[in-house]
């Protein structure tokens, strides 16, 4: 369990993390989401005792990270930037880490096998691709078999197969009862991985809720109906007390699912040309939520309006 209380970090006049308070519970994947520069990495660095909070505190399993006698056996972390010497082999990198926390050497082969790097374990990591580097980073995180796992942008640089692997791994770790915190700036990725969401922008908390709540609250869905007798259909559905918007020849209906709406219309003898559930993406919801807090906003070209 990770508990942050009033966590704040300022660099000169710039506030990177602004009074964040949250709890990362065990047994589920918590997504830590925010645009670039939102303070995710800074927060993670403070969790790991790399950066000193300006004020506030963060504890892991009830104490500060630095107070842990064998931190790698308590918290496993994948840091965003590569934190290894390019001239050292993957195995040697794991060797010194294992030595530092009294982890037996047999565990090195276990994690190499787990991340699929056993064949290249003797190669210098400077030759590794981005994806292999990420895999090694995950091997490092799991080296101490820790009950708390912190992954900063774990899917960066991974191919689709690797992304799926990380996703399943995160879910599996949480399923084993571990505390799993995964940061990302991609809502679509989080939607597939996380049970719980912490959304930050400009260092401030924007949302701290379950994924299901986030979807209900921020992502709208409706059933799109096309019918040759659109006005009759509209009248019928409104008569059932449903929320109906009309755009030209299509209706946007909320309050019933597509099957029920189809049966209503069919029962009244109305032909239906299209009946579809439309879910506005979480990506859109996330963009709307964080629109004010994007650090380096791009301004759409003037013609961009035509795309919509």
């Amino acid at each position: 369990m990770i508990v942050a209380r009033g966590l704040t970090k300022t660099y000169g006049p710039r506030t990177a993390v602004d009074h964040l308070s949250f709890t990362v519970e065990p047994g589920r994947v918590t997504g830590f989401l925010g645009p670039n520069g939102a303070g995710k990495s800074t927060t993670m660095r403070m969790i790991l005792g790399l950066d000193r909070p300006t004020s506030g505190s963060v504890t892991v399993n009830g104490r500060s990270y630095a107070a842990s006698p064998a931190p790698l056996r308590e918290v496993g972390a994948l840091l965003e930037a590569r934190a290894l010497h390019p001239g050292r082999s993957a195995r040697d990198h794991l060797r010194w880490l294992a030595a530092s926390n009294g982890i037996p050497r047999t565990r090195i082969d276990e994690v190499l096998d787990l991340v699929g790097l056993e064949a290249v374990a003797e190669q210098r990591v400077g030759r590794f691709s981005l994806g292999m580097g990420q895999r090694l980073g995950i091997a490092v995180a799991l080296l101490g078999d820790p009950p708390v796992v912190v992954l900063d942008e774990p899917v960066n640089g991974l191919d689709p197969e690797g992304i799926r692997w990380v996703r399943n791994l995160a879910r599996e770790l949480a399923g084993q009862g571990r505390t799993v915190l995964v940061s990302s700036h991609l809502m679509s990725e989080m939607a597939l991985t996380a049970d719980h969401l912490i959304v930050v922008g400009r260092g401030r908390m924007l949302a701290d809720c379950s994924m299901a709540d986030f979807i209900t609250e921020h992502a709208s869905s409706y059933v799109r109906v096309r019918s040759p007798r659109v006005s009759d259909a509209e009248a019928l559905l409104r008569g059932q007390g449903l929320d109906v918007d009309r755009l030209d020849d299509q209706l946007r209906v909320r309050g019933r699912n597509a099957a029920e709406i189809g049966e209503l219309l069919g029962g009244a003898g109305l032909y239906v040309h299209e009946l579809a559930l439309v879910q506005s993406s979480l990506e859109d919801a996330f963009m709307t939520l964080t629109a004010d807090s994007v650090e380096y906003a791009t301004h759409p070209a003037e013609t961009a309006g035509a795309v919509r």
């Binding site: 047994g27 299901a212 559930l277 879910q279 979480l282 990506e283 859109d284």
Partner: peptide
Amino acid sequence: MSATPTVSTAPARPGTGSSSAADVVRLDPN
């Protein structure tokens, strides 16, 4: 990314949903 599969979060897993932190396995670091 519009429409479809974004809803498929939170697949059925034992011990999720209403479960409290209490019935989560306590992991021994050693």
